[in-house]
Write a protein that binds this DNA or RNA. Structure first.
Length: 589
RNA sequence: GGGGCCGUAGCUCAAUUGGUUAGAGUACUGGACUGUCGAUCCAGUGGUUGCGGGUUCGAGUCCCGUCGGCCUCGCCA
């Protein structure tokens, strides 16, 4: 039907007769001549209907509207002097229409790809096919496609085996909420869609496929966020006879290749590392944004010797007083905005409050609470915070975890609002040596921080039963611009150690046997040492393309309530389907 | 489950302290125009202000509820 695409024609094709197909992007009707911008995913080309082609041609062209699909046959011509469009790669030429065929007339669209203002997101999602016509969306999906191409090539070159694992598996006791699929053959029994192919890839290691890779779809029935969708794509891989360094090195190479190919950025390897403890101390977060400073400063020792009731109450009960210095920000934060920040740390992180000081000329600290402190103490605080005139100091006095969350939240918010970094910059690093376990506040038990198959550091083995809180895992997270882009661990390959960890997590042997019996069995049949990692592909595309929502990087994403506005999934089903599955829907109260 | 923002013409938005007939741009329809490229010019159509209730002489505006979208805490091994 066509000889060229709409982004292809240049001066070299002048005087050739060509056939183009595409969507009418815009039409400019001058009565005598009609100019049309014809669009496809490759670009735009101006095609012209003029009286030389006949009155009926001009009439037909004047009836065309945005998003009509047409085919034209015509001659490529040099544009007259002064009418070259330098904004278009094809702007030097135009196609003089000889034949015009309307392949499909479009209804007037609720919005068009060319319009200046982006419509609301719900409308974009309902008419996703229109939204996906926008060059911006096409650019992002093409970038995603290219990244996947590079990833597949990278691992193919390194003898990785691509193995597909089941979608229909069984529910796991820990982790995220599962999406369930009812079994027809076994009424009352359910498959679970995979949260990740974790167990299968470990089994593949036991089976001797010592380098496994898969671009795997994963499902988690949890609440959504700007960077979280209920179904998402992971680059999942696993390797045998490796340690953490081997896996990290493998991913270093991949990230560097992607950065070079996609953004033309040369990343220095190896990517920087930081331990979990250091990340929490310096940034209050296990995925710190290292594009800017504003590090957390511990002032607990100073607080302990002051008389200010709020600080003393925190330190006397084993809490901490930590702060950040928003350099030069004092004048930008009115009383009202500081109240907003206070409300933010209270509401979002459960902090009891926010103490703040403005650094005045001569370096004196001013604050409504300053009268609670002697000048010498304030001077010491200013020095600790490396305060300069014009700075804004913010402090949270609370439990360790609250100071972490609140200050990390403030740091992220202020870093963005104060433009502390170049949004186009790409900063990749690793956070390593995560704790093996964390305390479940409600149930008063230990839960695996990563997952229950994570191997502790060999030197921490004795701590498992004595001081589980201090045991560190052979775990590593890839952090890009303050986002967790992926994470992995070296796995337990010893059956006895796996049992010990299950015991510690309070998973009874019978339950472990029921849920993971096949893995525990497999570990006894010659399981090699192994480990791996999974990267969130959607998130990586988001970070590499500089978008701020994962939905912009997924062709057909779901809303915050996990609905697909185009297909209106989830939908109701026929009573007969429920009968076959032995299911009955209860009325919701 | 909690907190916040938003919902006005097909679309993007405006509408003074609660005050006359809810406006603009764009799209759409009709007309003019042979060099535009966000074409231009003229005219026109288009509204249950998401929905329901309340307060008021009077509600797009205030209050309550509800539906939908977004951000976020919890949650996400």
């Amino acid at each position: 039907m066509r000889t060229h695409t709409c982004g292809q024609l240049r001066a070299e094709q002048i005087s050739q007769t060509v056939k183009l197909c595409g969507w009418v992007d815009s039409a400019r009707d001058h009565g005598g001549a009609v100019f049309l911008d014809l669009r496809d995913r490759y670009g735009k080309t101006q095609v012209v209907a003029s009286p030389e082609g006949g009155d009926s041609l001009v009439q037909a062209a004047s009836r065309l509207r945005s998003e009509d699909v047409i085919r034209v046959v015509g001659r490529v011509e040099q544009r007259p002097p002064g009418t070259v469009n330098t904004k278009l790669p094809t702007g030097e030429i135009e196609v003089r229409i000889q034949e015009l065929e309307v392949l499909n007339k479009s209804k007037t669209a609720p919005f068009t790809p060319g319009q200046a203002d982006l419509p609301n997101e719900d409308l974009r999602l309902k008419y996703r096919y229109l939204d996906l016509r926008r060059p911006q969306m096409q650019k992002t999906l093409l970038l995603r496609s290219r990244m996947l191409e590079i990833i597949r090539a990278y691992f193919a070159e390194r003898q990785f085996v691509d193995v597909e694992t089941p979608f229909l598996g069984r529910s796991t006791p820990e982790g995220a909420r599962d999406y369930l699929v009812a079994s027809r053959v076994f009424p009352g029994r359910f498959y679970a869609l995979p949260q990740s192919p974790q167990l299968y890839k470990q089994i593949l290691m036991v089976a001797g496929y010592d380098r496994y890779v898969q671009i795997a779809r994963c499902f988690r029935d949890e609440d959504l966020r700007a960077d979280r969708q209920p179904e998402f794509t992971q680059l999942d891989l696993e390797m045998s006879f490796v340690d953490a360094e081997d896996v990290i090195g493998m991913i270093d190479g991949l990230i560097a290749r992607l950065a070079k190919a996609v953004l033309d950025i040369d990343l220095a390897l190896p990517l920087p590392r930081m331990t979990y403890d250091e990340a929490m101390a310096r940034f209050g977060h296990d995925a710190p944004d290292l594009r800017f400073g504003m590090e957390l400063v511990d002032c607990t020792d100073l607080a302990r010797v002051c008389e200010f009731r709020v600080f003393r109450q925190a330190t006397d009960t084993g809490g901490y007083v930590r702060g950040i210095n928003a350099q030069g920000a004092a004048s930008q934060f009115s009383r009202k905005r500081l109240d907003e920040l206070t409300e933010y740390v209270k509401q979002d992180f459960g902090a009891r409050g926010l103490a703040w000081f403005r650094v005045e000329s001569e370096g004196k600290l001013w604050s409504p609470i300053a009268k609670n402190f002697p000048d010498s103490w304030l001077a010491e605080l200013a020095e600790r915070m490396q305060a300069s005139p014009g700075d804004l100091l913010l402090f949270v006095a609370d439990r360790w975890d609250v100071t972490c969350k609140a200050l990390a939240g403030l740091r992220k918010r202020l870093g963005s609002e104060l433009k502390c970094y170049d949004p186009a910059q790409l900063h990749c690093s690793w956070v390593v040596e995560f704790p093996m376990f964390e305390r479940d506040q409600e149930d008063e038990r230990w839960v695996a921080m990563h997952h229950p198959f994570t191997a502790p550091r060999p030197q921490d083995l004795p701590l498992l039963e004595t001081e589980p809180a201090r045991a560190r895992a052979q775990a590593y997270d890839l952090v890009i611009n303050g986002s967790e882009a992926g994470g992995g661990t070296i796995r337990i390959h010893d059956h006895h150690l796996q049992q010990r960890v299950f015991d510690l997590l309070g998973i009874p042997p019978e339950l472990a046997e029921e849920r993971f019996g096949f893995l525990l069995d497999a570990l006894q049949y010659g399981a090699p040492p192994h480990g791996g990692i999974a990267l969130g592909i959607d998130r990586c595309v988001m970070l590499f393309s500089g978008r701020d929502s994962i939905r912009e990087c997924i062709a057909f994403p779901k809303t915050q309530r996990a609905m697909d506005l185009m297909t209106e999934a989830p939908g109701e089903v026929d009573g007969r389907q429920l009968d076959e599955l032995g299911l009955r829907v209860l009325p919701m109260i």
